[in-house]
Design a protein around this nucleic acid. Structure first.
Lengths: 148, 148
DNA sequence: CGTTTCCATTCACCACAGTGGAGCGGCGCC
DNA sequence: GGCGCCGCTCCACTGTGGTGAATGGAAACG
């Protein structure tokens, strides 16, 4: 909730990739490490990528990855490659991810995402609602130390 | 008309880029040269790219362009960057381009493309129909020496 | 025909995308 | 508190993405 839908944030490749890391989690809720992503991509897709390079991308010290690496990263995180290019797609994907995150934090399991036709704005609104309701119900919302 | 909508063709970056060159023309119907595209990208977008490298991409001798070059080429040809990544997007874009090409070859001018909601299959069908009708009417369809 | 022009193709080279490994700080464990 | 593990950070280096200039061939011109 730190950053609302502020359209003026940088939207660089690095920021977008970092957002994926912070949003898309493993089954046990932990963030993926750079190394986990690197080895998973090598194992699942046959593409080679190093953990240190992923770090360079996330921090913006490298900002011009090649076709194959863009493809591999997008595939791993389950987002279209256009996520890194088209800001409109970025908004749409992040709205969907926010919804999934809110549902996850609310303890929802096995809910089929049938909101495919909704606009990013609607999805974000739903995500916010779920978050609020969840916080109200629990009085002590689950916190997993995520602020770096 | 050499290659119909055969979904089994390679769909490599090079093939897709080459398709754009053959389909997207200048105002005077001529194909863009590699050099024209290179200088236009440098002039319009500030990104540097060389004509020889574009050739390497088109012929498949280079197949791993960087983020900035993918973006620049997509922008120049007026297609989303996803055209190079997602085959579904490739189909959609090519269907739209085929329609525009058919309309152009049929001599149509100033027709607003209001077919935004149609499926790629429908667009391709319409494109084919326009082509057939045009050929029938003219008995001598306009040929601009394009077979290399 | 000879000349010029233009553009695809090739070559030699350079800059930078991408790597491996060493260093370092934080955290859990005994 | 000391030890070991893990994952971020940084550095030196390599491979290849990308370039500019040279070559050749085919139209265009006269």
């Amino acid at each position: 909730m730190a950053v609302p839908s502020d359209p003026s944030r940088p939207r660089t490749v690095g920021a977008k990739l970092d957002h994926l890391f912070r949003t898309v989690r493993r089954a046990d809720q932990r963030e993926y490490t750079n190394e986990e992503v690197a080895t998973a991509i090598v194992a699942d897709q046959g593409e080679t990528i190093s953990a240190s390079y992923i770090w360079y991308l996330r921090t913006g010290q490298r900002d011009n990855p090649t076709f194959k690496h863009i493809n591999a990263l997008a595939r791993f995180f389950g987002v279209p490659a256009a996520y890194f290019f088209d800001d409109e797609t970025t908004d749409k994907v992040e709205a969907e991810l926010a919804l999934l995150t809110a549902m996850r934090d609310a303890g929802v399991r096995d809910v089929a995402l049938r909101a495919a036709g909704l606009s990013p704005a609607s999805l974000r609104t739903i995500a916010d609602v779920i978050t609020r309701v969840s916080e109200l119900e629990q009085t002590q919302p689950k916190r997993h130390r995520e602020d770096r």
